[in-house]
Amino acid sequence: MKRRPTFLISVMIFGFAFFYIPILSMIVYSFNASRLATVWGGFSTKWYVALFTNDKVIDALILSLKIALVSATISTILGTMSGIVLARYTKFRGRTLFSGLVTAPLIMPEVITGISLLIFFILLGNWIGWPASRGFTTITLAHITFSAVFVTTIVHARMLQADRAIEEAAMDLGSRPWQVMFDITLPVISPAILSGWLLAFTISLDDVVITAFTTGPGSTTLPLLIWSKVKLGVTPDINALATLMVVTVGLGVVAAGIIMNRAEKRRQAEERLAFQRND
């Protein structure tokens, strides 16, 4: 006998409506012909056309993608290293500080991370002449630092589940520690590394606060561009841009989810088949 949890279902419906009505409303209004962003004036795609002919938007998008690509890759390398270290090297001098350093940026308010990096870069520029100006490099360095910490968390969690014996078996069969890492550890945790990279990429692509502090003249990322416009209010072209971004990411996540779900189902089916045939 199963009772229908009516209360739970109504709260869930409310919760999901709360989640999606603002986004849906934004999508609908991106097709608004009116200049006034919140008053409906008929259907139109002109804001999308305007978007694609706006060089500023295109440039900002390219800069954002460049930064996200570079910072996601480097932070994945660093984060994977520290995730493995946290799980596998339980005793070394300075481990307490190390584990503090890889968790602190997670909870540090972004304003503080941003300001401290900005002050640091300015003083460093004054003392040693580098960085001479802020822009692509400083933004990327900042993004690497805080996305690496997210990658660390993901990789660490995965490493704790991984069977230590597999790595020992490889060592036992003649592999040196670094070979074990490339032959066994990294392939086994590769899905976690991939999700780490994706997370780092989206975080970088999305970041406003830290980017705002570490950027310099001439380096406007897409979120910064949106930030500067949004501070002045709601405009239809931002609705269009937002719709494109939300839909792109949404489709990507849904597709990834479906692909992973299928792969998992296929793997389970194969496993069942194997046992039926051989035992």
Binding site: P22, I23, S25, Y29, D206
Partner: peptide
């Protein structure tokens, strides 16, 4: 996974 800034922005549209 979607932009934080845009989620804030979506509410600006509703609350105006």
């Amino acid at each position: 996974w979607t932009s934080f800034l845009l989620r804030v922005y979506a509410w600006m549209g509703l609350m105006g």
